[in-house]
């Protein structure tokens, strides 16, 4: 009886290689298709306030592969010492909406009106952005709380470096813009 041992060894190695490669290819394509279909929440990576132009610039990323449609923006000012929350801006984007393409980084400028009150140290500027996904009917809300530091509001002297206490809270469906400042 003959035993083609080297042939069996070579065939086993080749079969393992082909099974590994082909199975890996199929699994990878299925996994990447699944990942590409998952919607991701937009993330605020940076926010800075331009004192002269009175513009809050928010940098938004879309980490997923589903485009995000930004529907409207809201700006609420909550004074540091007492007082009521002031809604400064509540408008739709020009052209109806703004689309964050997959895996992109966009800078969004939220300008204060000339008649709006001036920022003082410790004031919280809450920027809320409503967004939705192409095939989901729900509307989601992202709220970023910007705390004005001494360099943002030089009218009053303040020693606290409040820039470090930036906070972002994506919330679903509710408007808690002025409530939670941690």
């Amino acid at each position: 009886m003959y035993r083609p041992v080297p042939l069996i060894l070579i065939a086993s190695i080749l079969a393992l290689f082909i099974g590994w490669g082909g199975g890996g290819y199929l699994a990878w394509s299925r996994a990447s298709a699944t990942l590409a279909a998952l919607p991701a929440a937009p993330v605020v990576t940076a926010a800075e306030y331009d004192r002269e132009a009175r513009v809050l610039a928010v940098t938004l990323t879309n980490p997923g592969l589903v485009p995000i449609e930004l529907v409207s923006k809201t700006l609420v000012l909550r004074p540091a010492e007492g007082g009521k929350d002031v809604a400064l801006l509540d408008v739709a984007f020009s052209g109806g909406s703004l689309t964050l393409p997959p895996a992109s980084l966009e800078r969004l400028e939220l300008a204060l009106e000339p008649g709006d009150p001036k920022l003082s140290v410790g004031d919280v500027l809450a920027a809320s952005i409503a967004y939705r996904y192409p095939e989901i009917a729900d509307l989601y809300l992202l709220t970023h709380s910007f705390v004005a530091g001494s360099e943002d509001a030089p009218e009053k002297d303040g020693a606290d470096g409040a820039d470090a206490s930036k906070d972002e809270t994506p919330t679903v469906g509710g408007d808690d813009a002025g409530e939670d400042t941690r």
Partner: peptide, 25 residues
């Protein structure tokens, strides 16, 4: 194309195996 290559590798493997076996015999 990579998918086509992996799919084609299956019959290629069997042909290679049978041919090598025949030559061995």
């Amino acid at each position: 194309l990579e998918g086509a290559v992996w799919g084609a590798a299956v019959p290629v493997f069997f042909v290679f195996l049978l041919e090598a076996l025949a030559r061995w015999q």
